[in-house]
Design a protein around this nucleic acid. Structure first.
Lengths: 148, 148
DNA sequence: TGATTTAGTTAGCAACGCTAACTAAATTAT
DNA sequence: ATAATTTAGTTAGCGTTGCTAACTAAATCA
């Protein structure tokens, strides 16, 4: 039979759990994406910007690693952020090749508003949940971040 | 001050929980996406195909609704699935405008293999978790699907 | 000094999301 | 019965976001 050299197949229960998480993440993001057409800042930019705002200034390569994206992808993302006045680029005094990106004040404002818009609907639905379930979801989110 | 007519701001705890979920979903999908370049079937196609495989044949509009995507987007997705021999199109006997999409045998195979590839790494990491946390994640996934 | 590595850019491709504008079939109203 | 409207789907065209390949230039190593 072809392709017999599969990696050790995970137990069905694990596979099912992984499928559920996968599917839930896809549908969650699709739902949220529909609400942010009016923002003019895409999700990838918002996410990169949030690293700068909450994590502080850093190089393009560091941003790419934080965002799990290749350097050319991040290079284009930060070019757009810069063009839109949401971040600035400064030479790294230690390394003539590197640039240090830093969120501008406007970047901070846009990030906060963007995240609020994007997650407002989600927050609204969370509000309808019993507190126990809400807590469970929050812990699950932390668990996922630790997992990856 | 400009833009004062915001919608009722959600309580900070809710907003934070929504942000965590949002961020976790983004990073989870980015991680998974890196592992499936070799498949040749994108995530949107895989997701649509899974509706056909697990949910049965249905029209393009129904698929679009299931996938929370506009009809033109789904029209292109199914055209690709059809071109690649993963699904077939049949006239709806009840409605001359509509097409019924159906997964082919090959579509079924590709879906199963694709999902396995995409979630294998995730399943592997889940395996390292204590069972209680694994259960919590699975329940969280179900909760998210219900939420949206 | 010369070779290699590292940081970033540019060019070009593909997947996917959207809206606008269209065709054609079905339905509703006159 | 016919005309108007609604519904299903397609096509065209745009923007964002991923990627690899190929490049420049600075830093580091031999």
């Amino acid at each position: 039979m072809p392709g017999a050299a599969s990696p050790p197949a995970p137990p069905p229960a694990l596979q099912a759990a992984a499928d559920h998480l996968h599917s839930a993440a896809i549908h969650l993001l699709r739902t949220l994406r529909r609400t942010d057409a009016r923002l003019g800042v895409g999700p990838a930019q918002l996410s990169a910007l949030s690293v700068l705002v909450f994590g502080g200034p850093r190089s393009i390569g560091a941003l790419a690693r934080a965002e799990q994206v290749r350097v050319p992808t991040m290079s284009r993302l930060v070019a757009t952020l810069e063009r839109d006045g949401l971040a600035t680029r400064a030479a790294d005094p230690q390394d003539g090749r590197a640039s240090i990106m830093r969120a501008t004040f406007r970047g901070r404002r846009v990030l906060l508003r963007g995240r609020a818009l994007r997650t407002a609907e989600l927050a609204r639905r969370l509000a309808a949940l019993p507190p126990a379930e809400r807590t469970a979801l929050d812990q699950a989110a932390a668990l996922i971040e630790r997992l990856i």
